[in-house]
């Protein structure tokens, strides 16, 4: 690693100010993506702004129709949360499938969503549930947040503080793990709301995306059989040594069916 300065602000505005005032500074939450990048010398920020002293970013709260998860809440806490297990079990299940136990101890929902890795799990849950990303400046709907490969709507100095999830009628997540990395080769999150169904896919393409034909079919009949014949186009899907694009496309249908099964179980 190349040397950098380290800041641990205890107020969100201070953190935002550090990020905008120090050139080439970077935010660090759990560090599960950033630290490996620094180790490999693929990035060399001049300063890190660590969010761990911002106590207000941790924790899970709910009201009648939503659950709000603080940005610095680790995956293990989400996975073990009785509240989330009860109200959105598919989201707890998703959190329990990220990385491995040590990754789940440190990795945070805010870090994962802000990073928008094309094979990360949380973007599928956030987009699939139509969540709202709450930042230091504003609220952003999931549909407007994820802009493709590692790109999001976040502006310089804008910090995710929490994510607010509407409580669905049912939801499920199915993940086909890349055998070596344990990231999603294909992960599909399916959520049924009173007014319709959302289907979000991670791992298959350059960023998380929705599948309108599946959403329409499942809105009519929320059952795996409704989407069994729906195939997605291979254009733009990722192709690598683990999975070619047509296989990924096939897996989207299989995982979507399994996500519906999980939601129904």
């Amino acid at each position: 690693m190349k040397p950098f300065a380290y800041h641990q602000p205890d107020q969100i505005p201070d953190a935002a100010k550090l990020l905008t005032s120090i050139e080439d500074s970077k935010l660090v939450a759990g560090g599960m993506t950033l630290i490996p990048t620094l180790k490999q010398r693929l990035a060399s920020p001049t300063a890190l702004v660590d969010l761990s002293k911002l106590g207000s970013l941790k924790g899970i709260t709910d009201d009648a129709a939503t659950i709000t998860i603080g940005a610095m809440t680790p995956h293990a806490v989400v996975a073990a949360s009785k509240l989330i297990q009860t109200k959105i079990p598919g989201l707890a299940a998703l959190a329990s499938m990220i990385g491995d136990p040590a990754v789940r101890s440190r990795g945070t929902i805010g870090g994962s969503v802000a990073n928008n890795d094309p094979a990360a799990d949380y973007p599928a849950g956030v987009l699939g549930l139509g969540a709202t990303i709450i930042t230091s400046k504003r609220e952003i709907a999931a549909d407007k947040f994820f802009l493709g490969l590692f790109e999001t709507a976040l502006e310089l100095g804008e910090i995710i503080t929490a994510i607010r999830f509407p409580v669905p009628v049912k939801a499920g997540y199915a993940k086909f793990k890349a055998p070596a990395s344990r990231y999603a080769l294909v992960g599909v999150f399916v959520a049924k709301f009173p007014d319709g169904v959302r289907v979000a896919v991670t791992g298959a393409g350059p960023g998380v995306f929705r599948v309108p034909p599946m959403e329409a079919a499942l809105s009519g009949h929320f059952d795996p059989s409704a989407i069994a014949a729906i195939k997605i186009d291979t254009d733009g899907l990722a192709s690598d040594i683990h999975a070619e694009a047509d296989y990924r496309a096939h897996l989207v249908t299989v995982m979507a069916k399994r996500a519906v099964e999980a939601a129904l179980s």
């Binding site: 055998p179 069994a228 195939k231 070619e244 296989y247 096939h250």
Partner: peptide, 20 residues
């Protein structure tokens, strides 16, 4: 015998193993 390889083998055999 990775999943991708097995799936392709089954595809090439033109078998009824699609997502059904």
């Amino acid at each position: 015998a990775t999943p991708n390889r097995i799936w392709r083998l089954l595809q090439n055999a033109s078998l009824p193993v699609a997502a059904e």
